[in-house]
Design a protein around this nucleic acid. Sequence first.
DNA 1: CATGAATGAGCTTTCATTCAT
DNA 2: AATGAATGAAAGCTCATTCAT
Lengths: 206, 206, 206, 206
Amino acid sequence: MSSKRLPTAERQAQIANAALRIISMQGVRRLTSAALAEQVGIADGTIFRHFKNMNEIVDAAIALFEDAIAEAFPSDEGPPLERLGSFVVMRLALVRERPEILRLAFNDRLAEAAGQEGAARVGQMVERSLTFVRRCLADAQERREITPDAPLALLVWMVIGVIRGAADTDTHRAPREGGLSNATPEQVWASLEHFLRSTSKEEEHQ
Amino acid sequence: MSSKRLPTAERQAQIANAALRIISMQGVRRLTSAALAEQVGIADGTIFRHFKNMNEIVDAAIALFEDAIAEAFPSDEGPPLERLGSFVVMRLALVRERPEILRLAFNDRLAEAAGQEGAARVGQMVERSLTFVRRCLADAQERREITPDAPLALLVWMVIGVIRGAADTDTHRAPREGGLSNATPEQVWASLEHFLRSTSKEEEHQ
Amino acid sequence: MSSKRLPTAERQAQIANAALRIISMQGVRRLTSAALAEQVGIADGTIFRHFKNMNEIVDAAIALFEDAIAEAFPSDEGPPLERLGSFVVMRLALVRERPEILRLAFNDRLAEAAGQEGAARVGQMVERSLTFVRRCLADAQERREITPDAPLALLVWMVIGVIRGAADTDTHRAPREGGLSNATPEQVWASLEHFLRSTSKEEEHQ
Amino acid sequence: MSSKRLPTAERQAQIANAALRIISMQGVRRLTSAALAEQVGIADGTIFRHFKNMNEIVDAAIALFEDAIAEAFPSDEGPPLERLGSFVVMRLALVRERPEILRLAFNDRLAEAAGQEGAARVGQMVERSLTFVRRCLADAQERREITPDAPLALLVWMVIGVIRGAADTDTHRAPREGGLSNATPEQVWASLEHFLRSTSKEEEHQ
DNA sequence: CATGAATGAGCTTTCATTCAT
DNA sequence: AATGAATGAAAGCTCATTCAT
């Protein structure tokens, strides 16, 4: 898959990506130095010219994951439901483009391969996403754009649930009637937003 | 952890349970015959008097999982939102009582340890749950108990998202302000139901 | 294969016979306590109620072998070719009736399973047979019943070769044209004797 | 017993040879990866960089056996007793030079270690040898160089018996009076040929 | 006597890691 | 930088042997 004598930086990237791919497609148990070497197209011993040991490879894979997630955060400015919309759309796009990334977030695989410290890093990114969503929703509730009497956590779970569902559907399962697999991220968000907003109308009418 | 000379059936149950626990708490890579033996309190060789090999242990663990999930299905009778309510409450209760079970469903760990065939079995239980939820929601939409213009898949993901969220919150993370960790399953469902129903009121007013 | 609560002596015989059978039909590597137990129809632990350990089982099997061989020795009296004839006929009969016995003699399997001391015992029985044949042939040479200028060892090997050949043919291979598999032991000996004697005629004619 | 860092091909040869040696000198049960590694002078894990598993090691050993036997076949041309003479001499030489080879042929050890398929391969080489001898003898009978009224199978067994006897004598037992251990292969064949031919003279005289 | 659960040593195999080439 | 042979520590599994029931 790869030729000879690349600079370490490039090889490191190849290896980290291969690790991410293997973990998310075949599982942690298959993440072996031999499997990595084969994917990258080098001899197994060569792996350790570029990384001190397997832990550092998983660290590098986590870094890739962190970067990808970090890029999929919209700005903190603007009206809450707009911020949330950007977030959802970006995440759904990420699901489509790099399905392996989000599969890891909802799935302790990377964490497992990474041990204590790595698990914490993955957990932090997840936490940061939850916090982002929570803040948007809290603001929206305050502005009465969505119903304020639904517990915040419930709303967060529902929004995150949609992203998870999309991640699962895209990767595991065949498209299904009533599914949203061929809806664009924007269409999905439109439906979700409409649904969230609709709950507040009721209050106004009261 | 255990006394001596138990009948095979009992040991098998102990071992399968230990496997479930290890996979869900420590990850597939830690599911070793030594770890199992230690948890059960027997020597490692003894494991294989009770199971032919590790695969069969994972199979047994999957069977436990299947049984637990199968028991957490309510009847198919009755009004849709009532059925859905029972389902959600049962699943949330399962999350509280046996947190390791649902962590597996949302988490390819068991599947990974189990290979092709085992993965399929886990997938089927998940699918069956999704189908149950989808049917309840479709019926509710038909009866106009919830808004009919939200895509069905979206609703399914939101409901499932709540269960997943509960599963994650309960196990991974410290309770948090705005969380629902100390709400009872019934309270969580009440909020969720209120929220779902509120969306249909709007239509009536139009 | 067997019922419950037999006296030790009987079980010992069953077990030793089973060992002989397994070694000669399936090979030393398959001689395990579990395999023995299964053949005899008892639980594996029970084996060691009747024998202290596997070595003693092999010893007992060797004893069976020794007895069978010892019984297949004719008297030392009489004209040499007659003695030799009895010997050959008895051995060929043994090949037919209990093929596993002679397969072991020509085959270090028992010896291998038995270690140093057991190997020596098997070797002794073989030696005793060789010596018997050698003596008959030497006497016959002296009496000019067979040619005296063939080296004795050569004659011994040829006679033993016939017995080995019969042992192999009977067990391994399908009967073949030109074979002797359906000749009686007596017929085989008649041919062999005729052949041996024929070599001496020549001398007489000189 | 060996230095470090040899190319795989060489190590494979070393390992296969060691396997052959161990099987024939110590028995199948002693053919363990540890024993092989020790003989070759490497660590046990290293064995499996050169062979996928023990089966393949036994296969390689069988290949060595096959090659050695195949080389010890003379041409099919020429007068039958001359062909047979070459065969016998070559085999006796093989016995002297590489005693482990022929011990395997007369001994199911390799076959046992090799399972079904391997056993068949060993059996074929044996069969091929028997066929060669049978054909020589049949031709010789037709030409009246040896007596035509001895059953062919009997003659085959006697000739093969001489080779077996030599193989056994050389390896197992101390040289003995009346033995042929210090006769050259050519001398043994001379005696054997003389003996075989002598049987036909008789007929001429009749 | 018989059973079968338990043990622990030993075997095959895998794998991260090192290092001579 | 790259290779691939070598290492040694597990991991999975087998088996003789013990012993509570």
